[in-house]
């Protein structure tokens, strides 16, 4: 499926108000929580000048993540894996609230605890792998896990050197993996075999992904989830216009139900 065909499906199956809702991570979280879908906890949400004046970074735990509520493609995400200066946190929040990372007049700075990957998925310190499940009208179609690497500087973006690994929807095991478009059998950093590796809590991940459709009102969606070491599967984001690279990762074309 190409972008043109995907956009037709989106125009048909995704309501405009639902698209607008999932572009805002604060609204998305609210919708998902209302539907009983676990999401990453919110430490604080900084909104407007008043919110900035009240924002006290010294009250945050030592590690956290700050992200714009309405940015895309990982823009403006500050990961505090170790304590950062209060001024750095405050300045980043100011830039987010000013809409710097979302090309808007204003935005909300969302602060969440730093999630730790489930040890079966990645050792701590190599970044947080995220799972992507494409769902159409309640049917999961394709799934992949994006594994960060040293080359991708801990980010899971595939074009920056992250590994894209296809996950079999039934068994929850990785069936093939690619980095920079080339097949890889083992993780380049720690040598773990990737093909055949089971994704922990897989059934729960698929269940959450399927429930995100009715919760957000989207008929065609890409659900980004993580498996946190302590909290288990959590939905990070819901995409109304999920990218198509998953087809290359899985080696299968998207065929709609």
């Amino acid at each position: 499926m190409g972008i043109n065909a995907r956009n037709v499906v989106i125009g048909r199956d995704n309501d405009r108000s639902a698209i607008a809702a999932v572009r805002d991570k604060v609204v998305t979280k609210h919708l998902l929580q209302t539907a009983g879908i676990p999401v990453a906890p919110t430490l604080t949400a900084v909104e407007g000048r008043l919110g900035l004046a009240r924002f006290d970074p010294s009250l945050l735990p030592p590690t956290w993540v700050m992200k714009p509520a309405r940015s895309s493609q990982g823009r403006g995400v500050l990961v505090a894996a170790r304590p950062v200066a209060i001024e750095v946190a405050r300045r980043h929040a100011e830039r987010i609230v000013a809409g710097e990372h979302s090309d808007l007049d204003e935005d909300v700075a969302l602060v969440e605890p730093l999630l730790r990957p489930h040890p079966d998925l990645a050792p701590d310190g190599l970044g947080l792998p995220d799972l992507r499940v494409i769902v159409h009208r309640g049917v999961p179609l394709l799934a992949m896990v994006r594994l960060p690497t040293v080359a991708s500087r801990g980010r899971s973006n595939l074009h920056q050197g992250g590994i894209g690994a296809a996950v079999d929807l039934t068994s929850g095991r990785i069936t093939r993996a690619r980095q920079h478009g080339r097949p890889v059998e083992h993780h380049p950093d720690d040598g773990r075999p990737l093909v055949g590796m089971p994704v922990p809590h897989w059934d729960a991940v698929v269940d959450l992904a399927v429930r995100c459709g009715p919760a957000t009102g989207l008929g065609y969606l890409g659900v980004d989830a993580v498996v946190d070491a302590r909290r288990g599967p959590l939905v990070l984001e819901v995409n109304s216009h999920p990218g198509l690279e998953i087809q290359n990762v899985c080696g299968r074309a998207l065929v709609l139900s």
């Binding site: 190409g2 198509l244 087809q247 290359n248 080696g251 074309a253």
Partner: peptide, 8 residues
């Protein structure tokens, strides 16, 4: 996309 998805 013919190039991007050529293997598929």
């Amino acid at each position: 996309e013919l190039v991007r998805f050529r293997r598929l």
